[in-house]
């Protein structure tokens, strides 16, 4: 076992891809650093916190991007976002078997907030363009900093999200909600509350995550490969019919669970017998317990 949660972006790519297959584009030696951080007395990183490149996954040709949460929480700035957009647009030209996004991000980088926000919207349009061209985009979310803000939206634009229990996926992070709305709205230091609200198990039960895996780089690899093969058979679907179906799913989620105040209420409505036990189950027992209980 090699923990995905604790690994770096580069470490995750090493374990995920076929050995030696990663070819990085605009690597750290290019020193394509953020032009905005220095004036704010903030150190830059040689890769601006994201690795992009080409590689192989069990022989399949993939484009990959991996955000480094250790650098400014994986936040998206001008260069970081442009690397991601450029990679996605590269897929339009090279038509790989899929694009893998190893997300780990608090969202927009405040030090360059306007550039970051615009960059995220460019990423959003690029993701949808790639999918519309028939190329699947798969998200892996299991890093220390989770996936929030604009990247939380980006993740749900993709074909599928693979999460571990430790992964987190949302829009506004618990700290942001607590700071703005007060601790009674969301207590960000209540770890159990945070995990059952935005953690992998709940996202899987809601159908926001397609696959739940153990916190193991090899498990993420296997899940990404399975999804890639599954998606290469049917391809991404962004048709009116597909979005109307998604609309119906989201509408019934609102109707069924709109009045729920805690994940436990939702899990109970899903028919899970002892919902309060779900957080303590290991991944395998959890998956066995909730089989046929997901949305």
């Amino acid at each position: 076992m090699s923990s995905y949660y604790e690994d770096s972006a580069r470490g995750r790519l090493d374990g995920l891809l076929d050995p030696g297959s990663l070819i990085e584009i605009v690597p750290p030696t290019e020193r394509m650093v953020s032009p905005h951080l220095r004036q704010l007395d903030t150190p830059a990183a040689f890769d601006d916190g994201i690795v992009v490149g080409e590689g192989r996954l069990a022989g399949r040709r993939v484009l990959v991007a991996a955000q480094e949460g250790g650098f400014m929480g994986g936040a998206v700035g001008e260069v970081h976002g442009a690397k991601l957009t450029g990679l996605l647009e590269r897929a339009l030209d090279t038509r790989p078997d899929g694009v893998l996004l190893l997300v780990e991000s608090g969202g927009v980088r405040l030090h360059e907030a306007n550039a970051g926000l615009i960059a995220v919207s460019e990423v959003m349009r690029a993701v949808l363009a790639v999918r519309a061209a028939g190329i699947p985009v798969i998200v892996l979310d299991g890093g220390t900093f989770g996936c929030f803000g604009g990247m939380g939206i980006v993740s749900r634009l993709c074909d599928a999200v693979v999460m571990s229990e430790e992964g987190r996926l949302g829009l506004s992070g618990p700290e942001v909600i607590e700071t703005t709305m007060g601790v009674e709205e969301f207590d960000s230091r209540d770890r159990a509350l945070v995990w059952r609200t935005v953690g992998g198990k709940h996202r899987y039960l809601l159908g926001e995550a397609a696959t739940l895996v153990e916190d193991d780089v090899a498990a993420f690899r296997a899940a990404a490969l399975a999804l890639l093969d599954q998606l290469s058979d049917r391809g991404p679907d962004l048709s009116l019919a597909a979005l109307e179906a998604e609309h119906a799913v989201l509408g019934s989620r609102l109707e069924r669970f709109g009045g729920c105040r805690d994940a436990l209420d939702i899990w109970e409505k899903l028919g899970v017998e002892e919902p309060e036990k779900l957080p303590i189950l290991d991944t395998a027992s959890f998956l066995a317990t909730v089989r046929d209980r997901r949305v």
Partner: peptide, 19 residues
């Protein structure tokens, strides 16, 4: 090697690029 990169630019940490 063409280059070696170690570490991450995070609090109490550093990245080292050798070429």
């Amino acid at each position: 090697p063409p280059s070696v990169l170690v570490g991450v630019v995070g609090s109490g940490n550093l990245e080292v690029l050798v070429e």
